[in-house]
Simulated assay, not measured.
Amino acid sequence: MSLALALCLDALFGEPKWLWNRFPHPAVLMGRAIGWIDENVNKGTMRKLRGAVAFSVIGCLALVLGAALQALSGHIIDVILAAILLAQRSLVDHVKDVANGARLSLQEGRRMVGRIVGRDTSQMDNPAIARAAIESAAENFGDGVVAPAFWFAIGGLPGLLLYKVTNTADSMIGYRTPRHAEFGWAAARFDDLLNWVPARLTAALIALSHFDFGGWHEIRKDAQLHRSPNAGWPEAAMARVLGVALSGPRSYEGQMQTFPFVNVSGRKDIGPDAVDASVAVLWRAWILLLGGAVLIAIL
């Protein structure tokens, strides 16, 4: 029942600013540690080996810390820590901010979506803003809610902390840039491994929460269009239940990238209403996830 309680706490309270303005969030502490490793270890020769060893060390420390916290703390503390590392409420709030901003002005929509995506936003029109927000909603529901919940259910706090530090490392050093292509290789590949089941579970939750029982073949086909082995699954499911086309061309660091559309026959001329609809999808899928957590606890 710990997972169900943690999901509810996160959904009710999210990330209270009064708390995290006074104390660093655990994810921030993880980011600082990984940043220090990147600055001090990512140099010289054999960077792939250096990155693999450094990531192995930080992963082991996450397991040990999780096991110690689980052994020393009470059941209530486990639930609170798990709730802190889930991100349903903060995710839907950020996605809603994009819709609200786009209704005010194009510039405000660009500013809001720039808070949740890494692509260039300065030249986005309203459909591009909406697609970016919806894609972020789908992908982050997978790696910010479903995957942490999955690994907490499987491995308790050690499993949850290992997943979170891996996902944080992937988001910081897992890119195929000249600096991180080798050093971040181990973190990126392990993140792919840890997200393999949760990504497909996320797609199933999105589809089943909308009674789409026959679309798995189409979701799988569209998921294979994505450059990531995992992120395409929730994105493909989200595109299908909303009836919109996602992905497509976008710009990174001033360079236009031509990516194929996911659910290419879906609507492309979309705006804030479609973003709001994606928030509703997140809540329906979350309810199904919560129901699954309760059922597992009962059984």
Rank of each mutant, 00 (worst) to 15 (best):
Arg32Gly: 12
Asp125Pro: 00
Gly184Val: 01
Asp38Asn: 06
Gly31Met: 06
Arg227His: 07
Asp222Pro: 04
Phe190Thr: 02
Gly31Arg: 03
Thr177Ala: 03
Leu72Ile: 08
Ala130Tyr: 09
Ala236Phe: 05
Ala237Pro: 10
Leu65Ser: 07
Leu242Thr: 01
Val197Pro: 09
Gly215Ser: 06
Asp191Phe: 06
Phe261Gly: 03
Lys268Leu: 15
Thr258Glu: 06
Asn126Met: 15
Arg200Phe: 03
Cys60Leu: 10
Asn100Arg: 05
Gly254Phe: 07
Leu19Cys: 06
Phe141Val: 07
Leu65Met: 05
Gly248Met: 02
Phe183Lys: 00
Leu288Phe: 04
Leu225Asp: 03
Asn100Ile: 14
Leu157Thr: 03
Val98Leu: 04
Gln255Thr: 15
Gly101Asn: 10
Val92Tyr: 15
Ser73Thr: 12
Ala4Ser: 07
Arg32Cys: 13
Asp170Pro: 13
Asp222Ala: 05
Arg179Ser: 15
Val41Ala: 15
Met124Ser: 11
Leu299Glu: 03
Gly243Tyr: 14
Leu161Asp: 05
Phe211His: 12
Glu135Trp: 13
Ala274Val: 01
Asp192Tyr: 02
Ala62Tyr: 00
Ser73Ala: 13
Ser105Lys: 13
Thr168Pro: 06
Gly271Glu: 03
Ser122Phe: 10
Ser278Ala: 10
Val28Glu: 10
Asp269Lys: 08
Lys48Pro: 12
Arg110Leu: 09
Tyr175Trp: 14
Gly109Glu: 00
Ala128Trp: 03
Val113Phe: 14
Arg220Ser: 10
Glu39Arg: 15
Leu91Phe: 10
Ile296Gly: 00
Arg267Ala: 05
Leu157Val: 12
Val275Tyr: 01
Ala181Pro: 07
Gly292Phe: 11
Glu253Arg: 11
Asp191Asn: 04
Met30Thr: 07
Leu5His: 04
Val28Lys: 04
Lys268Ser: 11
Lys268Ala: 07
Pro249Val: 05
Leu49Ile: 09
Ala67Ser: 15
Asp93Thr: 10
Leu91Val: 00
Val145Lys: 03
Ala285Asp: 01
Gly156Val: 12
Phe141Asn: 05
Val146His: 01
Ile173Phe: 11
Phe13Cys: 14
Glu135His: 04
Ser251Asn: 06
Leu12Tyr: 12
Arg227Pro: 11
Leu193Lys: 02
Gln123Ala: 15
Met1Glu: 02
Ser265Asp: 14
Thr258Ser: 04
Ile129Trp: 01
Ala54Ser: 12
Glu235Trp: 11
Ser247Met: 12
Val146Ser: 08
Gly66Ser: 03
Leu295Met: 08
Pro229Ile: 05
Gln88Met: 14
Phe152Leu: 11
Lys164Thr: 08
Ala4Arg: 08
Met238Leu: 02
Pro229Cys: 08
Pro272Ala: 02
Leu208Phe: 07
Leu162Cys: 14
Gly31Tyr: 10
Pro158Met: 14
Asn140Tyr: 09
Ala245His: 01
Pro234Leu: 02
Pro234Ser: 06
Leu193Thr: 13
Leu72Cys: 15
Trp233Thr: 02
Ile219Met: 12
Arg32Gln: 13
Ala223Pro: 07
Ala188Ser: 15
His180Ile: 00
Gly271Pro: 06
Ala138Pro: 15
Val281Leu: 02
Ser73Glu: 03
Ser136Phe: 10
Ala239Gly: 06
Asp93Ala: 06
Ala277Phe: 03
Asp38Ala: 09
